[in-house]
Each structure stands twice: as structure tokens, then as C-alpha cells.
């Protein structure tokens, strides 16, 4: 029988392949992606992001991320910004998890420099890149302006972010462009990923663009050309992800 054979090697996740999931393991996996919640001792589903102690970031790093992401996605007449959407918490939890550790990346040396077409060739994980780069950006701010990034006025903050984007700031081993691209990519993820991951709070990102969330059946609606789709926003963990993250649902 086939099944018996397939059971061989049970008990060890094959790091090369995706692991089996189910609704229950999904919920667990969100928690796994948010190890902090357990570490904080308030139960695996307690994750109210408001002023939650960061897991990976130091308080100063979190302050930097708060300030930088709020410039990348500001509060304006189209709605709240990165801070209101919980993006610092999202990035913090991502860096504390498998992504932060580059768990699925090939990280064996040697590490020569490559050309753009060869892609990422740094020996640092995303978590290390953030730590190192934030430290250097802050040193740059102190040297240029005598204060940390978060205390610069918005125009100066924007100037510095543009300079990072163009690769005009020296961050040692880490090209400024690489750090900026990673920060901006993770910021967008925090705004547009399922709120189950602690960002996109109150569906901020999805409300901005009009994406209703993971719904499953559009057989009837797909033929209603030109009409807005008006069902309520929904997450993988229901209509009220904040309550879910607080452990109330």
C-alpha cells in the first residue's frame, strides 16, 4: 500500500519542501510567525499591536522603523499611515521569524560580488541587514543633523529616504539601495498582507485600494461588469482580525 511507504521519515520536516497545513496549523503558523506572542507570556493569540514591545527590534530600532515607514506610507486625506496600520509590528515579527533568519535562502559561501542580474549576494540575513543598516543610518543622522532620524523634520526624513533609495548613503557592507528596497518591500507587505500577520490593521491597505480580502466564490459576481463589489472586508481569520489577534475571537 502506498500510504505506508509515504509515512517513512515521519517526524522530520523536509526543509526543502513546503509543510502540510490545515486551518489549525495555519493558525499555529501565524503564531509561529509571531513567536513573540508566546514569549510575552500572554498566550499565543494575544498580540494587540498597540504599543506592543517589539520582539526583534530594540526600542530605538522600532522608533526608527515607526518614523521611516510613516514617511513611506504617511497618514493623509486618504487615511492612516504605516503606524496606524501596525507595520512596525508586522516587520518586527517577520524579522523575528523564518524570513528574518533567511531560513529558505542558500547562504553558503564564498561570497563574491555579483552583477545586478545575479541578484542578492550578501552574507547577511534580513534581520542582520536591518540591524546593521539602521545603526548606520542613525549614525549618519547624528553626524549630519545632531539627532536621530525620528526627530528630523519630515522634509529631512524624506531627503534621507530618497538618498538611501538612490544608494547615496554609505552603509558599509550593505548597499543603501538594498536596505531601502527591503524596507519598502516589507512596508508594502505590512500594509497589504492579510491582517492575520499583524499589519494591515483594520484592513487599512485593502480599504485604500478596494481589495475585499480572500473570498472564495465569484461565480455570479464576475459577470457583473463595471460594478463595484461591496461585500465586507474579510481576513483569513475572519471579519475582525484585531479581536483575533487579541485572543477575543
Amino acid at each position: 500500500m502506498s500510504m505506508r511507504d509515504s509515512e517513512r521519515g515521519k517526524g522530520h520536516g523536509h526543509r526543502g519542501g513546503p509543510t502540510r497545513t490545515s486551518r489549525r496549523t495555519f493558525l499555529k503558523s501565524v503564531v509561529a510567525a509571531t513567536p513573540a506572542l508566546g514569549l510575552l507570556g500572554c498566550g499565543p493569540r494575544h498580540g494587540s499591536a498597540q504599543a506592543r514591545t517589539p520582539v526583534y527590534f530594540t526600542p530605538d530600532e522600532a522608533t526608527f522603523i515607526d518614523a521611516a515607514t510613516q514617511r513611506l506610507i504617511p497618514a493623509d486625506d486618504l487615511g492612516g499611515g504605516a503606524n496606524e496600520a501596525g507595520i512596525t509590528t508586522f516587520i518586527d515579527l517577520q524579522l523575528a521569524g523564518a524570513y528574518g533568519r533567511a531560513e529558505r535562502w542558500y547562504m553558503q559561501g564564498p561570497w563574491p560580488h555579483g552583477i545586478d542580474q545575479q541578484g542578492f549576494q550578501l552574507k547577511y540575513t534580513p534581520a542582520q541587514i536591518y540591524r546593521d543598516a539602521i545603526g548606520r543610518v542613525e549614525a549618519h543622522c547624528r553626524q549630519q543633523h545632531g539627532k536621530p532620524f525620528a526627530q528630523l523634520d519630515p522634509a529631512h526624513q524624506d531627503d534621507l529616504l530618497h538618498a538611501l533609495e538612490k544608494g547615496e548613503v554609505d552603509l558599509g557592507d550593505i548597499p543603501a539601495k538594498t536596505f531601502f528596497a527591503m524596507l519598502w518591500q516589507n512596508t508594502q507587505e505590512g500594509y497589504l498582507a492579510d491582517p492575520a500577520y499583524s499589519g494591515n490593521r483594520d484592513f487599512a491597505g485593502w480599504k485604500l485600494i478596494g481589495f475585499p480580502g480572500p473570498r472564495y466564490n465569484y461565480v455570479e459576481d464576475i459577470g457583473k461588469f463595471g460594478r463595484p463589489y461591496e461585500a465586507p472586508f474579510v481576513s483569513l481569520v475572519g471579519r475582525d482580525p484585531s479581536a483575533y489577534l487579541r485572543g477575543e475571537s
Partner: peptide, 10 residues
Amino acid sequence: PDFATDTIQD
């Protein structure tokens, strides 16, 4: 269970 819609739409 792997592709159930409440798991896979992530």
C-alpha cells in the same frame, strides 16, 4: 487539508 481556501489564500 493543504489547499483548503481558509489556508491557501495567503
